[in-house]
Nucleic acid binder design. Structure first.
Lengths: 324, 324
DNA sequence: TCGGATTAGTAAAACGTTACACTAGAGGCA
DNA sequence: TGCCTCTAGTGTAACGTTTTACTAATCCGA
């Protein structure tokens, strides 16, 4: 690897001057500036980030801590984060906690050792772990708000309302709720947005809460089989909806002929299951990009509000809901 | 952040001694060793990786360069890589090239600047880019062999053969091939394994090659619609198979009543589409873990062969193939 | 022409760690 | 006792970069 020293030697100036040129400082003349730049290019100079990091305390790397790459929401997010980060010259260090707080803590420790400049984080568990004290680099949360931190996520209440409006419009008056984990605000708001948008028209025949990974518990299975008067099942996300559909058809219940169903997230697979799933689309790419931008702003010293950045969602009407 | 200096001051020894203790060197007595260790714990010492990197030239970080996180094979792989890396104390730096050689080159440059100790890589494009010269850190390829590099992947020939055996057993004698991109060995071998396992029994009614992302081109669409005498469609991977199924049912062709179909990869969604897809399962987690282990071996100086590590695959029989 | 301000460039310290070369003392042995 | 070998520990240079404090030269205005 060529270093500033090599460039300095090649051009015949001091390393300080090389550094000054490379960092765009004004105190160096045109001709030497050009010489240095050309030598740098010719020698294929790549800055040694470790040395820079040691001197400046900034690594130009950020952490991305996710609970579960297996949920298709997250790869899409990761892709967006990585790409916009790369365009800013930031390296993305990945931690997949597999939903375990312990793994998350380990990953965090690793990120701290490597002194990442910031962390984009979708936390597991209801509260922030204790290792988040003042010395920690800036954190931007994704999807799961915690007091004191900026967070970016979709307008889940709006999503719930859109679904409610749509359900109403399609003539459904009695629904079953297969909500996500109610300790997560994102799941709660989807549900609440839906429920609150029906002043009194609605009847909730039953409500069961399951994990976002779409693994249905016994209670959910039971609710699906004898589904009461519900003509529409509102699932907490697409994974849940798809699992539920699978379970229904296996019990000989047809979708949407016998019962309608909606999802949330608009993952790729909503379009290939049968019937294609009606759902709410989140702008995942925009969310990831925004998180990186916030991060970058905080890293470069701007004081950004520790509030929320919320993205609109849209209804994607497909084939899993029929008029009642 | 506490440094070795702080520990040295706290215990009353030199920084050299602290370093010696922390690195498990033998030249320090029991009592001081314990004192240092306790002080380190008490002060919450975390080594400064940047400083270590500068001194030793090793960062304890590895790069993971993938073509497309949107293909479910890769998140699963990434999860496995990240987890086994983390257990070895290695940080994973992610690059998603989105299938573009340019993005891959950018990501590579970033990884080089950060001086990762090794790169686990699933390359796009048929040949290795020019920036791979001798100074590069050790590379372990995933899934796509290139001369001179170790690679770990599944036994695609075996997968093809398993499918051929199965097709034969189920009475199919005429197939359509919806192969993956034939410039990729992984796609080619799946196809060849299949074709070669039928000495002369088989008839290949038609063959079209499409991308692994499952986006069907016009030729593929046409082949699917008038499918000739083929009673079985052998798709290059699950994404292709699922797209094809979707296309077939939209044309009023029933699966598997009118035509059978198989996939490859056994991604999660093979189990939720209708009908559930018969496919070949790859041990993705094992592949990821093995890649990290090879990497680690090479990093610690072991000379590993630049050959192949190949994993057995298995047939997962579900509902998309019917007896002919 | 004087002297202050500006411009162009440099020397060297510092970041936190490791590793080499070294020393002081203890122990062993003839 | 004298000499050699261990053991336990230390001092310090070095890694590549940035940055502060500094100098030398030039410029400008009066």
């Amino acid at each position: 690897m060529t270093t500033v020293k090599d460039i300095a030697a090649a051009v015949g100036v001091s390393v300080a001057t090389v550094s000054n040129v490379l960092n765009g400082r004004p105190n160096v003349g045109r001709v030497i500036r050009h010489k240095v730049l050309r030598a740098a290019k010719r020698l294929g100079y790549q800055p040694n980030r470790a040395a820079q990091a040691m001197r400046t305390g900034r690594t130009r790397a950020i952490g991305l801590v996710l609970p579960d790459l297996t949920n298709p929401f997250f790869p899409e997010l990761a892709q967006a984060v990585e790409n916009t980060a790369r365009n800013l010259g930031l390296l993305v260090c990945l931690v997949d906690s597999q939903g375990r707080a312990e793994g998350e803590a380990d990953g965090f420790a690793l990120l701290m050792q490597h002194a990442v400049d910031g962390i984009i984080w979708c936390p597991v568990g209801p509260r922030l772990p204790p290792y988040l004290h003042d010395a920690t680099p800036p954190v931007v949360l994704i999807d799961r708000p915690r007091p004191g931190f900026p967070v970016v996520h979709s307008d889940y209440l709006m999503g719930g309302r859109l679904l409610a409006d749509y359900a109403l419009r399609m003539g459904h008056r009695c629904v079953g709720l297969l909500s996500g984990p109610q300790n997560l605000a994102s799941a709660r708001q989807r549900r609440d947005g839906f429920v609150e948008a029906f002043p009194r028209d609605i009847t909730v025949a039953w409500e069961v809460s399951v994990g976002f990974d779409g693994i249905l518990n016994a209670e959910a299975l039971k609710a699906l089989k004898r589904r009461g008067k519900a003509t529409l099942i509102v699932a907490g996300n697409d994974l849940i909806a798809i699992s539920a559909m699978r379970c229904l058809v296996e019990s000989g219940i047809r979708v949407p002929e016998d019962v309608s169903i909606t999802g949330f997230d608009n993952i790729r697979w909503t379009d290939v299951v049968t019937p294609r799933l009606t759902t709410i689309a989140q702008p995942v790419g925009a969310i990831g990009a925004k998180a990186v931008q916030l991060m970058q702003a905080r890293m470069s010293g701007e004081k950004i509000a520790s509030g929320r950045t919320i993205f609109d969602v849209t209804l994607v009407e497909r084939d899993s809901v029929r008029r009642n």
